[in-house]
Simulated scan of single mutants.
Amino acid sequence: MHIPAPEEIRSARRRIGMTQAELAKRAGISQSMIARIERGSVDPRVSTLRLIIDVLTTAELPVIIAANLMHAPVESVSPDDSILSAVEKMDKMAFSQLPVLKEGVPVGCISEAAILSAIGEQRNQKGYHPKVRDYMEASFPTVPPEIEIETVVGILEQHHAVLVMKEGRVEGVITKHDLISLIIG
């Protein structure tokens, strides 16, 4: 662990716009201790420095919101599209599911599982040309663009994708794959 000099602590605190009192409260120590550490008049314990560093590091991390991570434009299909066109789009884009949008508003989603079901039924019915609406599933959850990514992570634990909506229209999409960029990026 790098042991910061008193002026490094003061500089980091000021850079993020935090007062000594705020730093002290978040670190669970007194404001007078922060002042003495920054003046260099006390040699703090390593555990105290670790608390201060953790608070400053966390405060410096940028807040990531859905709008920062979403992909746009959103590839989608219409409920009136044929299953065949959905398959072609999914194959071309290498997607396992697509949102179903009607005039920019989500009405469902179509997945590989739903398409396999359609293929099975189509074999038994000559002249049957299924539409996306016949096999679409419930829509992906929606979030506003300004929601913090931690909330989106929680939603993606239960769903394949999240649609980002603004003023009633889909603006973007976030998938589980997109979260990987947060880890490796």
Rank of each mutant, 00 (worst) to 15 (best):
Thr142Gln: 08
Val132Ile: 10
Leu116Lys: 03
Asn124Trp: 08
Pro141Leu: 08
Pro145Ala: 04
Ala138Ile: 03
Val105Glu: 13
Val107Asn: 01
His129Lys: 07
Tyr135Lys: 03
Val107Glu: 03
Ala114Phe: 07
Val132Ser: 03
Gln125Phe: 02
Met136His: 11
Gly120Ala: 00
Glu103Thr: 01
Leu101Glu: 06
Gly154Pro: 04
Pro130Val: 02
Val132Glu: 00
Val153Lys: 14
Gln125Leu: 09
Val107Ala: 02
Ile147Arg: 15
Phe140Ile: 05
Val132Ala: 02
Val152Leu: 04
Arg133Ser: 14
Pro106Leu: 13
Ile115Ala: 01
Ser111Pro: 06
Glu150Lys: 15
Gly154Trp: 05
Tyr135Asn: 04
Ile119Lys: 04
Lys126Trp: 11
Gly108His: 06
Ala138Gln: 12
Ala118Val: 05
Ile155Ser: 06
Gln125Cys: 00
Asp134Ser: 08
Thr151Gln: 15
Ile115Arg: 07
Glu112Tyr: 01
Lys126Ser: 15
Ala113Leu: 09
Glu150Asn: 11
Pro141His: 07
Ile115Val: 12
Val132Trp: 02
Val107Cys: 09
Val152Gln: 02
Arg133Cys: 01
Arg123His: 01
Ile110Trp: 09
Val100Leu: 10
His129Phe: 15
Val105Arg: 07
Asn124His: 11
Pro106Thr: 05
Glu146Leu: 01
Gly120Ile: 02
Pro141Ile: 13
Val143Phe: 08
Gly127Trp: 00
Thr142Arg: 15
Gly120Asn: 11
Lys102Gln: 14
Val105Pro: 06
Tyr128Asn: 13
Cys109Asp: 00
Ala114Met: 08
Pro130Ser: 09
Lys102Arg: 14
Val105Trp: 07
Val153Asp: 00
Ile110Leu: 08
Ile115Met: 08
Ala118Met: 01
Thr142Phe: 08
Ile110Lys: 05
Ser111Asn: 14
Ile147Cys: 06
Ile119Tyr: 09
Asn124Leu: 15
Leu156Arg: 11
Thr142Lys: 14
Ala114Trp: 13
Lys102Cys: 06
Met136Lys: 14
Leu101Trp: 08
Lys131Ile: 06
Ile155His: 04
Pro141Glu: 13
Glu150Thr: 14
Ala138His: 11
Gln122Ser: 15
Leu156Tyr: 06
Ile110His: 05
Tyr128Leu: 13
Ile147Met: 15
Ala113Ser: 12
Glu150Trp: 05
Cys109Thr: 02
Glu121Ile: 00
Gly104Ala: 14
Cys109Gln: 15
Ile149His: 10
Ile115Gln: 02
Tyr128Ser: 11
